[in-house]
């Protein structure tokens, strides 16, 4: 792999390999931005990886009152899963447990499309017979009486089969502090890109994994080639100047959105430079055999 160097940051000639996913979006509103954010944060908690959480979810964007159906501040949340059935199950469970329960919340479709997932249509039974159906302007809403008034929820939301999961950047730095600063800068830049989420804590993963393990029945294990403490003890992918590696994983509603997000991340890393940020950028793949989507870093480098 010949590295390309931009403003002192080495960028590997490699690619991120990503997979097709099913995704949906919802808009959560509340009386204040704080409570809209709270409901969204709760709903997207424990949704870092489809392997252990059933889905990957995160906040796509904060919406002003003018951008939401009920003219209250809101948040757009994206959910990704490997199948339509699992996505439906996760959406239903998370909205029921985390949004319905949140003070003053309401929940609307965040995605158009022919194919639909049940939203209010699944939750209306909580109303125990007092739920009210309302249709106007081509939209269908359910009003469910709750202790602070009514929970209003759109009947369905859209589903896309064009979504992509697993876009990623591996960020290597001289110290833990500079690497984290670099990852934070990249995550902040990617957060501004529409239609993508970074499902891990604050958008950053420190425990990248490889497929398989020496132990039976363990599907994934630590990516030892990128562990700085194993340098020398195992085969390593690290250069002598790297003491820390952090990863950003990106899921997007479209392949273009994932490419745009990776490009924004690389641009932010290059801008920060090697002294305060990353010395090298790479990406994770499986040799190009598994995922249908490949994002080559050299194509995305500014």
């Amino acid at each position: 792999m010949r590295a390309l160097t931009v403003k002192g940051v080495r960028i590997d000639d490699t690619f991120a390999e990503a997979f097709g996913m099913r995704a949906t979006a919802v808009i959560i509103t509340a009386d204040s931005p704080r409570w809209a954010h709270q409901a969204a944060l709760t709903m997207t908690g424990f949704a870092t990886s489809v392997i252990g959480c059933g889905c990957e979810a995160g906040i796509d964007s904060e919406l002003t009152a003018a951008q939401t159906p009920d003219r209250r501040p809101g948040v757009r949340v994206l959910l990704f899963a490997v199948s339509t059935a699992e996505l439906q199950k996760q959406l239903q469970a998370r909205v029921a447990q985390c949004v319905l329960t949140s003070p003053g919340s309401a929940c609307y479709a965040g995605l158009d499309g022919e194919e639909r997932l049940r939203l209010g249509n699944a939750l209306r039974y909580f109303g125990d017979g007092w739920q009210i159906s309302k249709r106007f302007g081509g939209k269908h809403y359910w009003r469910i009486p709750v202790m602070d008034g009514e929970f209003v929820c759109e009947a369905t939301t859209g589903l896309t089969k064009e979504a992509v999961g697993g876009g990623n950047l591996l960020i290597m730095g001289r110290t833990a502090q500079t690497t984290l600063a670099a990852a934070e800068a990249a995550a902040a830049a990617i957060a501004k890109v529409p239609n993508v989420i970074m499902p891990f804590p604050g958008g950053i993963v420190r425990s990248g994994s490889k497929v398989g393990s020496k132990y039976k029945g363990v599907p994934a294990s630590t990516n030892h080639a990128f562990c700085p403490t194993l340098r020398g003890a195992a085969d390593t992918a690290l250069d002598p100047d790297a003491a820390c590696v952090l990863e950003i994983v990106i899921d997007g509603l479209t392949s273009q959105a994932v490419a745009a997000a990776m490009g924004a991340g690389i641009a932010a890393l290059v801008k920060l430079g090697p002294r305060r940020g990353a010395v090298r950028i790479s990406a994770g793949n499986y040799g190009g055999k598994l995922g249908p989507h490949q994002y080559h870093l050299r194509d995305l480098t500014p």
Partner: peptide, 14 residues
């Protein structure tokens, strides 16, 4: 007396 979200949605449509 209530300030209903559903009434806001109706207002936006109407």
């Amino acid at each position: 007396v209530h300030d209903l979200i559903a009434a806001r949605l109706m207002a936006a449509f109407i």
